[in-house]
């Protein structure tokens, strides 16, 4: 009925996507129940979900225990803060480089030398400087996204059609006005798409940071499960990470399609 109402073209991906995902869960569950898989290593959904429900959605031991929504919120907060800062930073750096060639000469070496350093490699340094805190996690996310985004921003700026610049200059825009009213809107959708594709990198960076440093967040759930030999906790953590990541990607896709929709 729903399929008929909104058409197969639009409903198809959802219907088939849900079906194939359900099939995976069913197979996994069946493998667990029939003894085909080691339930101690890969406990089926019914097992680890009931465990989490039984514990009242609280993860951890004693005073270190935190509720699941706190874990999700702190991970989201870190990843969004880091990505927002990286987005703003990339645009700012792009502006500096776009407006002044002296800035280009000064900044470029840093960009290309620091970009290849994996965000994980910054963790020890960050912990020493910022301690075990949210700042460390945000910093790691920032380092994981900022450089790639800045290099992408520069590429987007080079792609702005010559005509736009001529037209705006011709209509009397100053260098600064041209930046604000022409180049910035021209590159925003492209840079945002890059941000979306780099969300996975940011997501991984924050999880790693939480695994090795933080005491809370989704990454910490996995580590806690490992330390407690609790595979149900590990499975549950992985599931939550996957679903949260999926939801965030949908939100970013929505922003890309509805708010920054134009293509240059």
């Amino acid at each position: 009925m729903i399929v008929k109402a909104i058409g197969w073209e639009r409903s198809g991906p959802w219907v088939l996507g849900t079906l194939s995902f359900t099939l995976l869960v069913v197979l996994w569950e069946a493998a667990g129940r029939t003894g085909l898989a080691f339930t101690t290593v890969a406990p089926p959904p019914s097992q680890f979900l009931s465990m989490v429900v039984d514990s009242g959605f609280r993860v951890g031991l004693g005073s270190q225990a935190s509720s699941l929504d706190e874990a999700i919120l702190s991970t989201f907060g870190r990843v969004f803060a880091g990505m927002a800062l990286a987005f703003a930073g990339a645009l700012l750096t792009g502006t500096l480089i776009g407006l002044s060639r002296y800035a280009t000469w000064c900044i470029s070496p840093f960009l290309y030398v620091l970009a290849p350093i994996a965000p994980i490699a910054w963790i020890p340094l960050a912990i020493v400087v910022f301690g075990i805190s949210n700042v460390t996690a945000v910093f790691i996310v920032f380092m994981g996204v900022y450089f790639i985004l800045t290099i992408g921003t520069l590429a987007e700026i080079r792609r702005v059609p010559e005509e736009y610049l001529t037209v705006s200059g011709n209509l009397g825009a100053s260098k600064w006005q041209r930046w604000v009213y022409v180049i910035l809107p021209a590159i925003l959708p492209g840079v945002f798409t890059l941000l979306r594709t780099n969300f996975i990198a940011a997501w991984m960076a924050v999880l790693v940071a939480e695994m090795v440093g933080m005491r809370d967040g989704l990454g910490a759930i996995i580590m806690m499960g490992r330390n407690l030999f609790n595979n149900e906790l590990i499975m549950f953590g992985m599931l939550v990470i996957g679903i949260s990541g999926f939801l965030v990607d949908r939100v970013l896709a929505f922003i890309g399609q509805r708010i920054l929709w134009w293509r240059v």
């Binding site: 010559e162 005509e163 001529t166 037209v167 011709n170 009397g172 293509r263």
Partner: peptide
């Protein structure tokens, strides 16, 4: 150099898509 007195129209990419 360019002056606001003289305005140019191109074959394409004249308009800002946003």
């Amino acid at each position: 150099g360019p002056t606001p007195d003289i305005v140019m129209i191109f074959q394409e990419n004249n308009l800002f898509p946003w």
